[in-house]
Design a protein around this nucleic acid. Structure first.
Lengths: 116, 116
DNA sequence: GCGAACTGATACGGTAGCGAAACGATTTCC
DNA sequence: GGAAATCGTTTCGCTACCGTATCAGTTCGC
């Protein structure tokens, strides 16, 4: 891995990638929603509402609402845990994977343009 | 500059930095607001409502509202252009600079933790 | 087996975002 | 000088988010 960023480089990268996201026609996620989505797709399961709420430092309804919205967009899927039916496990979808991959490509592309 | 990211590294960096932002007690900016703020602080002035709207591909009221919100937070400041009094120029503030610097530190720190 | 504890979802009142349209203020163009 | 164009803001109706409090369903503890 070669991730050596100075602050100014980091900020330029961030701005360029965010600008690209804003300009794209993709879904307009909040910072919290995007954080949840990235975490679900980058970290091994299981992911629960309670766990995500603790991770982000927010209340549970925030997670429920975010999953409602992203579920309607097809980015995530919810299922009851069969072992403990109180739990809900957040699962990935094909559509969500594609979105995450697109996000990765955007950041890499903007990084390359800066890195020249 | 050495910004060589692979997609997976880029996504991990993004998630870590966003998580750090969400968990912090700082202002909860939308993606559009943050993009505007970064652009204003990274690119040379002048910055106008119209220019920012065209840059982000959004309507002018979106910029006005974003500047309202970030202005109330003290992150930016608006002034009438004396040469052409139809224009409004967006100006930086000390508070905004500090926020941007904090943002840069967060990204660099998360990048270093990943890069080890 | 029954109350306590726990999990995720829902209800509520309030706030802030959105696009479209219309509005004053200012400048430009003949 | 007066109509047209430009710029940022405001208004309208709507949607989505927020935190707090509460809810129904499930599991745990004794």
């Amino acid at each position: 891995m070669s991730v050596h960023l100075r602050a100014s480089e980091a900020l330029y990268l961030w701005r360029s990638a965010m600008l690209s996201m804003v300009r794209s026609d993709g879904p307009d996620l909040t910072q919290r929603q995007l954080t949840i989505l990235l975490h679900v797709y980058l970290e091994p399961p299981p992911h629960t509402v309670r766990g995500l709420a603790a991770l982000l430092g927010v209340t549970k309804p925030v997670i429920t609402r975010a999953l409602d919205t992203m579920g309607a967009m097809g980015l995530v899927h919810r299922t009851r845990d069969k072992a403990d039916r109180r739990n809900v496990v957040v699962q990935r979808t094909v559509e969500g994977s594609e979105y995450i991959e697109m996000l990765g490509r955007i950041i890499v592309r903007e990084g390359e343009e800066l890195g020249v």
